[in-house]
Amino acid sequence: MRAVIGGLALVMALAVLTPGCGRRERASQTIRQVGSTTVLPLAERWRREFNKVHPEVEIAVSGGGSGTGMKALIAGTAEIANSSRGIKAREVEEAEAAGVNPVEHVLAYDGIAVIVHPSNSLHEMSVDQLSEIFSGGVTNWGEVGAGGMGEIQVVSRDSASGTYEAFKDLVVTLGGTDKTRDYAAAALKQASNQAVLALVSKTEAAIGYVGMGYLDEGVRALKVAPMGGGEGVAATVEKAMSGEYPVSRALYCYTSGEPSGVLKEYLDWMKGAEGQRIVEELGFVPVE
């Protein structure tokens, strides 16, 4: 029995001691980057790639949401606040009261294409119609002018995805004006942009959404008309950058005052070729 306990103690001691060994390198400066979960995968990749060229800079990335990031910036517990929305007037007041001057940096656009099967007779839909469909108010194609296609098969991403949140904010809740709306329970949930594409390209009655960077020939992207009516706008990178395409938004980083030193270097790197290549790789729209 003693041997058993001895063995266990050894295993546990090893388990406790192994991590951490050799990981601590002397960091000259720490950048804490907190906020939006949409920006999180992007920030994480930026951190990894930037550390390959600048291993001396320690960057700590965490999520929590855009609001959390703003709070941390104001409280001085973060150097960069990631946000998937512009700063609110109330937050500017709070920041000024705390002696913080939030400076905005646009680092990417998040453009989401609404996709249907190529055989679908519809080419255009409004944000209001899309909200009805994705929240389960409208369940038959006949109700939106595509009779004979039967029940609408709504395809959504899983709740862990930033695109899920973005589409919910921009479309399902009508740009945040109706917070009671949420995705219909009957919506099919797919784990990746590719899975959504595969399912929609094989299902005639399906409608889904993917990051613009993922569009391919197997599906058709609908033109989307803004809330309250207007012309349908094609889901292209140009229209997302110009802000005309309604299902897109800028992704921001906020810093306290104009960045300098290592912080400036990091932000410039994100805006530069290397950082923007990652933006594109992760299915977002680059700023240039």
Binding site: G63, A160, G162
Partner: peptide, 8 residues
């Protein structure tokens, strides 16, 4: 499996 990855 689907939700744990990104849950804070």
């Amino acid at each position: 499996a689907a939700e744990m990855g990104e849950t804070a």
